[in-house]
């Protein structure tokens, strides 16, 4: 039974499973399905917080197969367009009065150049600014979302448009990962974002005095995470198993959306940096 469950999880969510994965609404009473996994996080500002689930090996294998098929199709298309280009180029070379200039030679598609959304992008999930679970008197929003069990990486604060455009920032140069398990609400803590002090130096005038030096030097980045444990749990969740996320250093991560690149502010006992080296203080591993 456990083996079957593990295999099902490793294969990733089906279309039916995906329908179950959604934010938990702010209602007086809460009914959660604890056969699933939940992630809880807070944010003092109404901004998106982006995470992605790390793909499992079966998902990677399936993706590679799809990618190989897409490459075959792209190559067939290129063969036709290249033959047409070559024909036109030959005519034009023979007599420029017989044909239009041939234009640039079509580039042969390769696995490296093939454009196809990566798995991490497919597995991206957003928390906020809509669909909050609670808001306290200080303005801090709590978000609770059912997710597919697995390992999650805090990726940044990114608005993704329907046309594929995106803006915001990623913590591509250093971040944290944690596991979300079925039967548990994994409390990530509080994620705070800041405006970029390089692009908008005037933001320093409005920053908290204790933050100014750090924002100016880069010691405080565009994203900070305060691990769970300092904030109480919503009483509506008292009947459920809420566990603080076990955070580990992670990254670097590709800038999939072409947004501003930053890294998560160092976290005592969890994450620090030696120049651009990412150091996991829970294991002394260096990324």
């Amino acid at each position: 039974m456990m083996l079957l469950l593990a295999m099902a999880l490793a294969a990733g969510p089906s279309k039916e499973d995906l329908k179950l994965l959604r934010p938990v609404k702010d209602t007086p009473a809460v009914q959660l399905d604890m056969t699933g996994a939940y992630i809880l996080l807070r944010s003092p500002a109404p901004v998106p917080i982006s995470l992605f689930r790390v793909a499992t090996q079966p998902e990677v294998d399936e993706y590679r197969e799809k990618r190989a098929q897409a490459l075959v199709k792209a190559h067939q298309k290129w063969e036709k367009s290249h033959a047409s280009w070559a024909k036109g180029a030959a005519l034009w070379k023979k007599d420029p009065n017989l044909a239009l200039p041939p234009g640039d030679e079509p580039i042969e598609p390769t696995d490296e150049s093939l454009t196809m959304a990566p798995l991490d992008q497919e597995n991206l999930i957003g928390f906020g600014p809509l669909n909050r679970f609670a808001k306290d008197s200080s303005g801090t929003s709590t978000y609770l979302q059912r997710v597919w069990p697995g390992r999650y990486v805090l990726y940044g604060s990114i608005f993704v448009g329907n046309n594929g455009s995106a803006f915001g920032s990623c913590v591509c140069m250093g971040t944290v990962a944690f596991d979300a398990k079925a039967g548990e609400i994994t409390d990530v803590g509080t994620v705070q974002t800041s405006i970029d002090a390089i692009t908008f130096p005037r933001m320093l005038d409005k920053a908290k005095p204790e933050d100014v030096d750090g924002l100016r030097s880069g010691a405080i980045t565009m994203m900070r995470l305060t691990p769970a444990g300092t904030v109480g749990i919503d009483p509506r969740l008292s009947a459920y198993k809420v566990v603080p996320a076990t955070l580990k250093a992670a990254g670097p991560v590709p800038n999939y959306y072409g947004v501003q690149v930053d890294r998560l502010t160092a976290i005592p006992n969890i994450l620090k940096y030696d120049r651009d080296k990412i150091i996991d203080l829970t294991s002394a591993a260096v990324h």
């Binding site: 696995d111 490296e112 150049s113 454009t115 990566p118 800038n255 999939y256 072409g258 947004v259």
Partner: peptide
């Protein structure tokens, strides 16, 4: 799992 180097 790359999107191709064009990516973002």
């Amino acid at each position: 799992t790359m999107a191709g180097a064009v990516g973002g």
